[in-house]
Amino acid sequence: MNIVGESWVTTKFENLEDWAQRNSFWPFPFGTACCAIEFMSTLSSHYDVARFGSEVVRFSPRQSDVLLVAGTINDKMAPVLKKIYDQMADPKWVISMGACACSGGFYRAYHVMQGIDEIIPVDVYVPGCPPTPEGLMYGILQLKERVTRDRKKHRVQAGLRAEEQSGKTEEAVDRVDDRVTAPA
């Protein structure tokens, strides 16, 4: 047992927790436009995102952990998006799917938000218009990798000693500030 109470058992338990967390994403499909149709294709039997643990997509921000923004978000929808994001409980991640959600796409217009990262922090950007279901699944796999890093980062931030992946941790620490100071 070291000074912060960590032992082999608790580390392994945390690894188990990480594994469970990243293999059971509960996406909140904030689908507005064409990307939502591609997301529906991802859900359906041809691609089946349930293989990655997202068996259930329900529109409940209290219970979901990945906010999957699929489609154009415009200035009228922005307060709604912010509210949903705020209602989600930590830990939460955001996947921005499609050109419109990432950056406004080709709608450089008076009513379209130029990317959802104007109001919420984004973890994975998936480009495409719309991204193919495989592209979205690639984004989800990238997020899985990110989730593992984040959990470890949080422990570092809480004062635990660095783990053997110290290289990743270094750059992770830089990103920690973004995560912590992001509006809750």
Binding site: C102, V124, Y125, P127, P131, E134, G135, Y138, Q142, R146
Partner: peptide, 11 residues
């Protein structure tokens, strides 16, 4: 079609 980015500066 495998494109996904973590940071804006990679895009």
């Amino acid at each position: 079609y495998d494109m996904a980015y973590f940071h804006r500066d990679q895009t």
